[in-house]
Nucleic acid binder design. Structure first.
Lengths: 214, 214
DNA sequence: TCATAACGGAGCATTCTTCTCCGGTAAGCA
DNA sequence: TGCTTACCGGAGAAGAATGCTCCGTTATGA
């Protein structure tokens, strides 16, 4: 196969093998996100490698096993989610816009992976902790929006979490259609509906137990 | 294994083998819906049989192949969707309530199966026709709601279709959470948001082409 | 020019899956 | 009551798919 070698990595500016390695790092993780969120954790590693444009060897040099890849993916996504939440909290201006932007960002990088693979990999304490941290930040975003009257009273931060999970699962095609639906859902989350939402406001504790149940 | 034989089928009132056969018919189809919508068309037939509480033999006597099962499932779901739409159209009173009830019903019986299995089975002309018929009815429901001012102007019937597909994919657990989200989305579909939906209103033609692309 | 480091992908062992086959069990009739 | 028959469940065969390893190849940099 023809390989594209001596091209500079636009990010680091480096060239050569090290640059290729760095690019592959990202490509593998991005591909894994794409494949596992769309097809579930049962998707094959070969599929990930193919989408990343990388050989099996290159993938397995980075992650000793499929499980390790999934765990790393979860960690990375949750870290991204934390960053996005912090950024949203730091934003001045309309609290609703900050929250909505956060949700869109999370959906864009498929922050809801964890729900897709929950039950197939052991959830480490580390993951639990990071998820908890992320949740705290989302809770603050929601509270702030509620104070500004820009979030329906009968919904809570866990509903936001579920929304992100739901839309993270979107298959790769048809991106516009899903963006429309997400916009619809966000509009519905902002203003109260004619009828209250069914059931009690879900709480984080039971949510955690759902994917902690080995 | 202990079998439960001489129990009357509550539906037909019949007893014995024929009753068991009838019960199994339903059980297999319901299980297939559940399994394939939740885990995708890659889910194993054994999983379906297990959930239906039926042996492999009983399943394969009904459907000669996995593909046949999937096709029959699609047909049945689309027929149900047509029925539900007709029922909704016949309803008097609030046009919005009729539409919302229709969507809820479709999600309840997972009308969006087709999207989950699209691309894995050949789509027969028959299926295309039934889907078209269903769409016509939904279009009428939407138009009626729009005339009553109970449907946002920048959305269309294909968006409703997408909504049903999205929520049909829900995994079996956590039903309440999804019902909340569906209510949120429906609220968002009723009244116009502060910003218009992104992209053009999707049309049925391109939608069809999406899952007709072999 | 040579040692090095990272690469791609064919191949191996094992698991998973679809579908077949058959012994068993109860309903229905003589 | 006893026989026929229709239907049931699940073990198992053939084959596909998957996770992972191994190795020959290729660009880099001294």
């Amino acid at each position: 196969m023809l390989r594209q070698m001596a091209q500079a990595d636009p990010r680091s500016g480096k060239r050569g093998r090290q640059a290729e390695a760095r690019r592959n790092d990202r490509a593998v993780l991005d591909a894994a996100r794409e494949v596992f969120t769309a097809h579930g954790p049962g998707a094959s590693v070969a599929q990930v490698a193919a989408l990343a444009g990388v050989g099996m060897g290159s993938l397995y040099r980075r992650y000793p096993t499929k499980e390790a890849l999934l765990q790393h993916l979860c960690r990375a996504s949750m870290d991204q989610q934390v960053s996005a939440a912090q950024e949203a909290l730091a934003r001045r201006g309309d609290p609703w816009e900050a929250l909505a932007g956060f949700v869109r960002a999370c959906v864009a990088f498929r922050a809801g992976v964890l729900s897709a693979v929950a039950g197939t990999i052991p959830v480490t304490d580390d993951m639990r902790a990071t998820a908890g941290h992320a949740h705290d930040l989302v809770e603050r975003l929601v509270r702030r929006a509620k104070r500004a009257g820009a979030f329906r009273r009968d919904a809570g931060s866990v509903d936001v979490h579920h929304l992100i999970e739901l839309f993270s699962r979107r298959p790769s095609g048809d991106a516009i259609a899903y963006e429309r639906l997400l916009t619809v859902a966000l509009d519905g989350l902002r203003t109260p509906g004619p009828d209250p939402l069914p059931g009690p406001v879900p709480d984080w504790h039971t949510e955690v137990r759902r994917w902690s149940a080995l």
